[in-house]
Amino acid sequence: MTGTSEVSNLETPPTNSKSAVRIVARALLVGDRIDAAGLERAEMIATVPLAFRLGPTKFAAFYRFGVAVFAGLTSEEETAFLEKIASRISGKPDGKNEETAVLEIRADYEDRVPPGGPVEMPDLSAARFLIVADVLAKSVSLARDEGKLGGVFDIIEPFAVQLAETGRAPWNRRSMLKLIGQALLAQHRISGRVAVEEKPDILWDRPNLERLYARLEDEYELNERAKAVTQKLNVIVETGQALTDIFDVDRATRLEAAIVVLILAEIGLTLFQIFFSFGHIPV
């Protein structure tokens, strides 16, 4: 964890212990970046990410890397909220990326994350919401990275197949430059991704919720997916470097060939001049 966030109003009204309440939390990829500066208001519960309590069990959080997380809101309410901050969202998402979690709340529950089942918790406090939001936001961000890397791999694969079958790279300069550009673009987009290994700042204040975070992290396989993304990115970067080296070697080889041709032409011209000069020596 790095830094701290200002958190307030972490308590939530008690839940009826006899019946469980189900609330849906949803993370949406809304753009490349959200500028949250100046959106602070009285119902704010945290500054990093900027998060609000909108009701006893209604929350919203916004992450700078383009993800909005809601809990307890209807689709219409989510849309209305996003319309209010539309001017602060830059870039457009490639397709629809979202992640949901069903939260089952009952006072006699302990924090538990059954495989494939609803997340059980005794209450939906602001602190618990921030932990759930952090995991969902990271999952959506990873899904975006996975999609972008998959597109680059689709371009790389035909090149790799031809290189394996023929032992020669396709000497189409434009296609090689395009592939190098795709590799560099993927590196640029992914290199600034959210650090999945960093835990949410709220755990500094609520270490008792560390277990809940760890269980959610395992459920959404954040570490495993982050490692896979890093490995794919390394392959793409190495491929881009290999293509650059091949391109440089090819250009150097052609330059050397041109120099050899010019030297031979110069030698031939010199020999011709010498022969022509000897052929016209007066007797």
Rank of each mutant, 00 (worst) to 15 (best):
P14N: 02
P14R: 03
P14Y: 00
P14A: 04
T15L: 11
T15F: 12
N16Q: 09
N16M: 02
N16W: 09
N16L: 04
S17A: 13
S17E: 15
S17G: 15
K18F: 11
K18Q: 14
K18L: 12
K18S: 12
S19R: 11
S19V: 15
S19D: 09
A20L: 02
A20R: 09
A20V: 04
V21K: 15
V21G: 11
V21R: 13
R22P: 06
R22N: 15
R22S: 14
I23A: 07
I23C: 02
V24Q: 08
V24I: 13
A25L: 07
R26H: 09
R26Y: 08
R26F: 12
A27W: 00
A27K: 03
A27T: 01
A27S: 01
A27D: 00
A27G: 06
L28A: 08
L28Y: 07
L29T: 00
L29R: 00
L29I: 05
L29C: 09
L29M: 07
V30Y: 02
V30R: 00
V30W: 01
V30N: 03
V30L: 05
V30K: 00
G31K: 00
G31A: 05
G31E: 04
D32V: 04
D32K: 03
D32A: 03
R33L: 02
I34Q: 06
I34C: 01
I34W: 06
I34R: 03
I34P: 00
D35C: 00
D35G: 01
D35N: 10
D35Q: 04
A36K: 01
A36Q: 12
A36V: 10
A36C: 12
A36W: 04
A36E: 08
A36R: 06
A37G: 13
A37H: 05
A37T: 14
G38L: 04
G38Q: 07
G38I: 02
G38F: 01
L39R: 00
L39C: 10
L39S: 08
E40Q: 12
E40K: 07
E40A: 10
E40F: 11
E40V: 10
E40R: 11
R41K: 09
R41M: 10
A42M: 11
A42S: 14
A42L: 15
E43H: 14
E43W: 13
E43Y: 15
E43I: 11
E43P: 10
